Simulated assay, not measured.
Amino acid sequence: MLSARVVSFSPADPLAGLEVGDAPSPTPPDGWTTVDVRASSLNHHDLWSLRGVGLRAEQLPMVLGTDAAGVTEDGREVVVHAVVGGPDGRGVPADEPRTLLSERYPGTLAEQVAVPAWNVVDKPAELTWVEAACVPTAYLTAYRMLFRSGAAQPGQRVLVQGAGGGVAVAAVQLGAAAGLEVVVTGRDAGKRERALALGAAQAVEPGTRVGRVDVVIETVGKATWEHSVRSVRPGGRIVVAGLTSGDPEPASLTKVFFQEISIVGATMGTRDELAQVLAFLARTGVRPVVDSTFPLARAADALARLHAGSHVGKIVLEM
Protein backbone atom coordinates (compact mmCIF):
# COMPACT_ATOMS: atom_id res chain seq x y z
CA MET A 1 0.00 0.00 0.00
CA LEU A 2 1.07 3.61 -0.52
CA SER A 3 2.11 5.46 2.64
CA ALA A 4 4.09 8.43 3.96
CA ARG A 5 6.72 7.29 6.48
CA VAL A 6 9.50 8.74 8.54
CA VAL A 7 12.66 6.77 7.72
CA SER A 8 15.25 8.99 9.42
CA PHE A 9 15.30 11.92 11.83
CA SER A 10 16.33 15.42 10.81
CA PRO A 11 15.66 18.11 13.45
CA ALA A 12 16.79 20.96 11.18
CA ASP A 13 15.12 19.75 7.99
CA PRO A 14 12.25 17.43 8.94
CA LEU A 15 11.19 16.72 5.36
CA ALA A 16 14.59 15.14 4.66
CA GLY A 17 13.49 12.05 6.59
CA LEU A 18 10.21 11.54 4.70
CA GLU A 19 9.61 8.64 2.32
CA VAL A 20 6.46 8.28 0.24
CA GLY A 21 6.16 4.79 -1.20
CA ASP A 22 5.07 1.22 -0.63
CA ALA A 23 4.69 -0.17 2.89
CA PRO A 24 3.32 -3.49 4.15
CA SER A 25 -0.47 -3.64 4.53
CA PRO A 26 -1.61 -3.87 8.17
CA THR A 27 -2.32 -7.22 9.79
CA PRO A 28 -4.64 -6.34 12.69
CA PRO A 29 -4.65 -8.53 15.82
CA ASP A 30 -7.84 -9.80 17.45
CA GLY A 31 -10.11 -6.96 18.48
CA TRP A 32 -8.67 -4.59 15.89
CA THR A 33 -10.04 -3.55 12.52
CA THR A 34 -8.54 -2.29 9.26
CA VAL A 35 -9.82 1.01 7.91
CA ASP A 36 -9.53 1.85 4.22
CA VAL A 37 -8.55 5.49 4.53
CA ARG A 38 -10.41 8.00 2.39
CA ALA A 39 -8.80 11.15 3.80
CA SER A 40 -6.24 12.06 6.45
CA SER A 41 -5.35 15.51 7.76
CA LEU A 42 -1.89 16.71 8.76
CA ASN A 43 -0.83 17.99 12.18
CA HIS A 44 2.34 19.48 13.65
CA HIS A 45 2.74 16.12 15.36
CA ASP A 46 3.83 14.79 11.95
CA LEU A 47 6.65 17.33 11.77
CA TRP A 48 7.74 16.54 15.32
CA SER A 49 7.87 12.85 14.39
CA LEU A 50 10.10 13.65 11.42
CA ARG A 51 12.38 15.54 13.80
CA GLY A 52 12.59 12.50 16.08
CA VAL A 53 10.39 13.69 18.92
CA GLY A 54 8.46 10.79 20.47
CA LEU A 55 10.10 8.12 18.32
CA ARG A 56 13.25 6.00 18.61
CA ALA A 57 15.48 5.00 15.73
CA GLU A 58 14.64 1.32 16.22
CA GLN A 59 10.96 2.08 15.49
CA LEU A 60 11.69 3.29 11.98
CA PRO A 61 10.26 3.26 9.42
CA MET A 62 7.02 4.55 10.96
CA VAL A 63 3.90 5.56 9.04
CA LEU A 64 2.99 9.13 9.93
CA GLY A 65 -0.43 10.53 10.73
CA THR A 66 -3.01 10.63 13.52
CA ASP A 67 -6.23 11.65 11.76
CA ALA A 68 -8.34 9.63 9.34
CA ALA A 69 -11.81 8.98 8.01
CA GLY A 70 -12.58 5.86 6.01
CA VAL A 71 -14.41 2.57 5.68
CA THR A 72 -14.06 -0.50 7.91
CA GLU A 73 -13.91 -4.10 6.76
CA ASP A 74 -17.68 -4.45 7.31
CA GLY A 75 -18.52 -1.32 5.31
CA ARG A 76 -19.03 1.24 8.10
CA GLU A 77 -18.11 4.83 7.33
CA VAL A 78 -16.06 5.91 10.33
CA VAL A 79 -13.75 8.49 11.86
CA VAL A 80 -10.67 7.17 13.66
CA HIS A 81 -9.93 8.14 17.26
CA ALA A 82 -6.16 8.53 17.32
CA VAL A 83 -5.55 7.78 21.02
CA VAL A 84 -4.64 4.14 21.67
CA GLY A 85 -4.57 2.80 25.22
CA GLY A 86 -4.76 4.75 28.46
CA PRO A 87 -7.80 4.89 30.76
CA ASP A 88 -10.23 5.50 27.88
CA GLY A 89 -8.75 2.86 25.60
CA ARG A 90 -9.81 -0.69 24.75
CA GLY A 91 -8.30 -3.36 22.57
CA VAL A 92 -4.79 -3.13 24.07
CA PRO A 93 -3.34 -4.37 27.38
CA ALA A 94 -4.83 -2.54 30.35
CA ASP A 95 -1.43 -1.36 31.54
CA GLU A 96 -0.38 0.04 28.16
CA PRO A 97 0.18 3.81 28.39
CA ARG A 98 -1.75 6.24 26.25
CA THR A 99 -0.17 6.84 22.88
CA LEU A 100 -1.13 8.38 19.55
CA LEU A 101 -1.15 6.62 16.23
CA SER A 102 2.29 6.95 14.57
CA GLU A 103 4.04 6.76 17.98
CA ARG A 104 3.72 3.08 18.91
CA TYR A 105 1.51 1.89 16.05
CA PRO A 106 1.59 2.87 12.35
CA GLY A 107 -0.37 6.00 11.56
CA THR A 108 -2.96 7.21 9.09
CA LEU A 109 -0.99 8.68 6.17
CA ALA A 110 -1.55 5.49 4.24
CA GLU A 111 -4.17 3.72 2.18
CA GLN A 112 -5.00 1.56 5.22
CA VAL A 113 -4.61 1.82 8.99
CA ALA A 114 -5.22 -0.78 11.70
CA VAL A 115 -6.79 0.37 14.98
CA PRO A 116 -8.64 -1.21 17.90
CA ALA A 117 -12.29 -1.64 16.94
CA TRP A 118 -13.09 0.61 19.91
CA ASN A 119 -11.26 3.46 18.18
CA VAL A 120 -13.74 4.06 15.39
CA VAL A 121 -16.92 6.13 15.58
CA ASP A 122 -19.56 6.53 12.91
CA LYS A 123 -19.01 9.36 10.45
CA PRO A 124 -22.00 11.70 10.24
CA ALA A 125 -23.49 11.67 6.77
CA GLU A 126 -23.46 15.49 6.81
CA LEU A 127 -19.64 15.61 6.74
CA THR A 128 -17.52 14.83 3.69
CA TRP A 129 -14.50 12.56 3.97
CA VAL A 130 -12.19 15.56 3.90
CA GLU A 131 -14.17 17.41 6.58
CA ALA A 132 -14.40 14.36 8.83
CA ALA A 133 -10.65 13.75 8.58
CA CYS A 134 -10.00 17.20 10.07
CA VAL A 135 -11.76 16.43 13.35
CA PRO A 136 -9.79 13.84 15.42
CA THR A 137 -6.93 16.12 16.50
CA ALA A 138 -7.64 19.82 15.94
CA TYR A 139 -11.39 19.95 16.46
CA LEU A 140 -11.40 17.34 19.21
CA THR A 141 -8.63 19.19 21.06
CA ALA A 142 -10.39 22.55 20.67
CA TYR A 143 -13.67 21.03 21.88
CA ARG A 144 -12.01 19.58 24.99
CA MET A 145 -10.09 22.80 25.69
CA LEU A 146 -13.17 24.97 25.49
CA PHE A 147 -15.88 22.92 27.13
CA ARG A 148 -14.19 20.40 29.43
CA SER A 149 -10.79 21.75 30.44
CA GLY A 150 -11.86 25.39 30.11
CA ALA A 151 -15.47 24.89 31.30
CA ALA A 152 -16.51 27.80 29.06
CA GLN A 153 -20.15 28.87 29.22
CA PRO A 154 -22.24 30.80 26.67
CA GLY A 155 -21.72 34.52 27.07
CA GLN A 156 -18.19 34.22 28.47
CA ARG A 157 -15.12 35.74 26.80
CA VAL A 158 -12.42 33.47 25.40
CA LEU A 159 -9.00 34.49 24.08
CA VAL A 160 -7.54 32.26 21.36
CA GLN A 161 -3.82 32.76 20.79
CA GLY A 162 -2.74 32.37 17.16
CA ALA A 163 -5.20 32.91 14.36
CA GLY A 164 -4.08 30.37 11.79
CA GLY A 165 -3.36 27.04 13.48
CA GLY A 166 -5.76 24.13 13.22
CA VAL A 167 -6.71 24.10 16.91
CA ALA A 168 -7.08 27.89 17.00
CA VAL A 169 -9.34 27.96 13.94
CA ALA A 170 -11.43 25.14 15.40
CA ALA A 171 -11.72 26.97 18.74
CA VAL A 172 -12.99 30.10 16.98
CA GLN A 173 -15.65 28.17 15.10
CA LEU A 174 -16.82 25.99 17.98
CA GLY A 175 -16.72 28.83 20.49
CA ALA A 176 -18.70 31.24 18.32
CA ALA A 177 -21.29 28.56 17.55
CA ALA A 178 -21.70 27.91 21.28
CA GLY A 179 -22.35 31.55 22.14
CA LEU A 180 -18.90 32.54 23.37
CA GLU A 181 -17.33 35.95 22.69
CA VAL A 182 -14.11 34.90 20.99
CA VAL A 183 -11.07 37.18 20.79
CA VAL A 184 -8.20 36.07 18.54
CA THR A 185 -4.59 37.17 18.18
CA GLY A 186 -2.53 36.76 15.04
CA ARG A 187 0.48 38.35 13.36
CA ASP A 188 -0.97 38.05 9.85
CA ALA A 189 -3.70 40.52 8.90
CA GLY A 190 -5.25 38.08 6.44
CA LYS A 191 -5.55 35.39 9.10
CA ARG A 192 -7.14 37.88 11.49
CA GLU A 193 -9.70 38.79 8.84
CA ARG A 194 -10.42 35.10 8.30
CA ALA A 195 -10.96 34.63 12.03
CA LEU A 196 -13.54 37.43 12.02
CA ALA A 197 -15.31 35.80 9.08
CA LEU A 198 -15.43 32.53 11.06
CA GLY A 199 -17.20 34.16 13.99
CA ALA A 200 -14.56 35.86 16.16
CA ALA A 201 -15.82 39.02 17.84
CA GLN A 202 -12.38 40.64 17.75
CA ALA A 203 -9.05 39.86 16.05
CA VAL A 204 -5.93 41.78 17.10
CA GLU A 205 -2.17 41.69 16.84
CA PRO A 206 -0.31 39.63 19.47
CA GLY A 207 0.16 41.46 22.76
CA THR A 208 -2.75 43.87 22.21
CA ARG A 209 -4.70 44.73 25.33
CA VAL A 210 -8.04 42.93 25.07
CA GLY A 211 -9.52 43.33 28.54
CA ARG A 212 -10.15 40.44 30.88
CA VAL A 213 -11.24 37.10 29.51
CA ASP A 214 -12.62 34.04 31.29
CA VAL A 215 -10.61 31.42 29.41
CA VAL A 216 -7.45 31.46 27.29
CA ILE A 217 -6.81 28.84 24.60
CA GLU A 218 -3.01 28.62 24.50
CA THR A 219 -1.15 26.58 21.89
CA VAL A 220 1.72 28.98 21.11
CA GLY A 221 3.72 29.08 24.35
CA LYS A 222 6.67 31.41 24.82
CA ALA A 223 5.61 34.09 22.33
CA THR A 224 2.13 34.60 23.83
CA TRP A 225 2.36 33.34 27.43
CA GLU A 226 2.83 36.70 29.18
CA HIS A 227 -0.12 38.11 27.22
CA SER A 228 -2.24 35.14 28.24
CA VAL A 229 -1.44 35.65 31.92
CA ARG A 230 -2.13 39.40 31.68
CA SER A 231 -5.42 38.88 29.87
CA VAL A 232 -7.16 36.19 31.95
CA ARG A 233 -9.35 37.41 34.79
CA PRO A 234 -8.54 36.58 38.42
CA GLY A 235 -9.76 33.03 38.98
CA GLY A 236 -9.89 32.35 35.24
CA ARG A 237 -8.32 29.49 33.28
CA ILE A 238 -5.49 29.16 30.80
CA VAL A 239 -5.81 25.89 28.88
CA VAL A 240 -2.56 24.71 27.30
CA ALA A 241 -2.34 22.18 24.48
CA GLY A 242 0.89 23.14 22.75
CA LEU A 243 3.95 25.36 22.68
CA THR A 244 4.90 25.91 19.06
CA SER A 245 7.20 28.79 20.06
CA GLY A 246 8.81 26.96 22.99
CA ASP A 247 8.48 26.98 26.78
CA PRO A 248 7.65 30.37 28.31
CA GLU A 249 10.38 32.19 30.21
CA PRO A 250 9.54 33.48 32.73
CA ALA A 251 6.39 31.60 33.71
CA SER A 252 4.86 34.63 35.50
CA LEU A 253 4.11 32.51 38.55
CA THR A 254 3.62 35.52 40.82
CA LYS A 255 0.57 36.57 38.84
CA VAL A 256 -0.61 32.97 38.62
CA PHE A 257 -0.78 32.39 42.38
CA PHE A 258 -1.70 35.94 43.40
CA GLN A 259 -4.67 36.04 41.01
CA GLU A 260 -5.50 32.36 41.54
CA ILE A 261 -5.29 31.55 37.84
CA SER A 262 -5.82 27.91 36.90
CA ILE A 263 -3.49 26.44 34.29
CA VAL A 264 -4.94 23.28 32.77
CA GLY A 265 -3.30 20.92 30.30
CA ALA A 266 -5.26 19.28 27.49
CA THR A 267 -4.28 16.59 24.98
CA MET A 268 -6.76 15.42 22.37
CA GLY A 269 -9.95 14.05 23.97
CA THR A 270 -11.83 10.85 24.62
CA ARG A 271 -13.62 8.65 22.11
CA ASP A 272 -16.96 9.87 23.50
CA GLU A 273 -15.87 13.49 23.05
CA LEU A 274 -14.96 12.72 19.44
CA ALA A 275 -18.52 11.50 18.90
CA GLN A 276 -19.81 14.65 20.61
CA VAL A 277 -17.84 17.09 18.47
CA LEU A 278 -18.83 15.23 15.29
CA ALA A 279 -22.47 15.58 16.34
CA PHE A 280 -21.87 19.26 17.18
CA LEU A 281 -20.59 19.88 13.65
CA ALA A 282 -23.37 17.91 12.00
CA ARG A 283 -26.15 19.68 13.91
CA THR A 284 -24.84 23.26 13.86
CA GLY A 285 -23.70 23.33 10.24
CA VAL A 286 -20.18 24.37 11.31
CA ARG A 287 -17.66 22.77 8.98
CA PRO A 288 -13.90 22.38 9.39
CA VAL A 289 -11.86 24.94 7.52
CA VAL A 290 -9.80 23.19 4.84
CA ASP A 291 -6.75 25.08 3.66
CA SER A 292 -5.84 22.69 0.85
CA THR A 293 -6.00 19.07 -0.28
CA PHE A 294 -3.31 16.89 -1.85
CA PRO A 295 -3.22 13.31 -3.10
CA LEU A 296 -1.29 10.94 -0.83
CA ALA A 297 1.45 10.68 -3.44
CA ARG A 298 2.16 14.40 -2.88
CA ALA A 299 2.49 14.10 0.89
CA ALA A 300 5.87 15.84 0.73
CA ASP A 301 4.26 18.96 -0.80
CA ALA A 302 1.52 18.92 1.82
CA LEU A 303 3.99 18.61 4.69
CA ALA A 304 6.12 21.38 3.19
CA ARG A 305 3.10 23.68 3.27
CA LEU A 306 2.46 22.75 6.89
CA HIS A 307 6.12 23.42 7.71
CA ALA A 308 6.03 26.83 6.01
CA GLY A 309 3.17 27.92 8.28
CA SER A 310 1.31 29.94 5.66
CA HIS A 311 -1.86 27.85 5.83
CA VAL A 312 -5.17 28.66 7.53
CA GLY A 313 -7.11 25.61 8.66
CA LYS A 314 -6.36 22.00 7.84
CA ILE A 315 -4.20 20.45 5.13
CA VAL A 316 -5.69 17.14 4.01
CA LEU A 317 -4.41 14.15 2.05
CA GLU A 318 -6.96 12.28 -0.05
CA MET A 319 -6.43 8.61 -0.89
Results as ranks from 00 to 15, higher is better:
G285L: 01
G164H: 08
P93Y: 13
M268T: 14
A178Y: 10
P136Q: 12
R90Y: 13
E249W: 09
D74P: 13
G265Q: 09
L196P: 04
A12R: 15
W48D: 04
D272R: 15
A125F: 01
A299Q: 07
V92Y: 06
P248H: 01
V182Q: 02
D247R: 12
V130K: 08
V289K: 12
G70L: 06
V121Y: 07
G75E: 00
D22W: 13
L317P: 00
D214E: 07
P288T: 05
T267I: 13
A304P: 00
V277H: 13
G91I: 07
D46A: 07
D301F: 09
T108C: 08
R148D: 15
L140Q: 01
V210W: 03
G91K: 11
V84S: 03
G89P: 10
L15A: 04
D67E: 11
R237D: 13
E126K: 15
A197P: 03
A39V: 00
Q259W: 11
V160F: 07
P61G: 05
V290L: 11
L127R: 08
E19A: 15
A132Q: 04
G190R: 05
V182R: 06
D67S: 03
D36Q: 15
W32H: 04
P106R: 01
P29W: 01
A16D: 13
Q276C: 08
D301R: 07
L174R: 07
R51G: 08
A266H: 03
A4L: 01
A178Q: 10
V53G: 02
A138N: 13
L278I: 07
L253F: 03
P14G: 04
